[in-house]
Design a protein around this nucleic acid. Structure first.
Lengths: 125, 125
DNA sequence: ATAATATATCAGCGTATCATGATATATGAA
DNA sequence: TTCATATATCATGATACGCTGATATATTAT
């Protein structure tokens, strides 16, 4: 692949968005919008396993979306910047108007369309 | 996985962000910020293969981020909403302040860190 | 020092994602 | 109709991702 896709800016931006592109990480980010939380708190509020939570927090931390602070034997996480919340809010606003289309967004290639259909049918139950 | 991560809103939002989370799709979205373009145009400006471009356009279309309009035997694509551009701009703004951290955001699990290091070293060349 | 708790890391497995090259479909031109 | 062009889809392979269960590390309490 030898194209504009390799430009550094686009790569970085894609990585930034990847921080937001997983339900588990979004759940964490949303939880942190209510204020700082320890890993234990986040495990409790999200219901995810501890290693999984820790991994996603590591990803978010390395993305620069959250900041970790050790306090005693706990580690407290908080959003790194108000714009993280702004991005979430803007996405919600956009989503409100394009929600129907996003039901189909599971697919990358066409082989995913069956799964998408199944999901849609299931949602309609 | 039986947790908050399964809530419908979070899933949809994750799918929306996945539209932005790939360099190829970001390149397409940025190209479309200059106005509508046909697939042929996009293939030319991004340098991506035609099938790959088409696949990514399909993803963006199903995400609701772009809209396709058939004109003759061409299909012209345009951004579906101003907020798509707003999200890109907001991300750029955020990125400008956390760029250093995002260099590390390749990782999900720790096994990716070697790759990340290699990328970083390569960037520093 | 030992034990207990909080967090991070590891190994692995199943699946999704993205790229490619070949092919199908569809629209317009000769 | 036949051909050329524009776009979409298919088959496949390589890699990335996310989850789990086990383990390592680090900090506090006894």
């Amino acid at each position: 692949m030898l194209n504009v896709t390799n430009s550094e800016g686009v790569q970085l931006q894609a990585k930034l968005f990847r921080g937001f592109s997983d339900p588990a990480r979004l759940a964490i980010l949303q939880a942190l919008q209510n204020g700082p939380q320890t890993v234990t708190d986040i495990v409790a509020t999200t219901g995810m396993s501890q290693p999984n939570t820790s991994n996603h927090l590591g990803c978010l931390r390395d993305c620069g979306l959250v900041i970790a602070e050790q306090q005693g034997r706990f580690v407290t996480y908080h959003l790194s910047d108000d714009r993280v919340g702004d991005l979430l809010a803007l996405a919600s606003s956009l989503l409100a108007d394009v929600a129907r289309g996003v039901y189909d967004c599971t697919r990358y290639t066409s082989r995913d369309e069956l799964r998408t259909k199944l999901i849609k049918e299931h949602i309609n139950d």
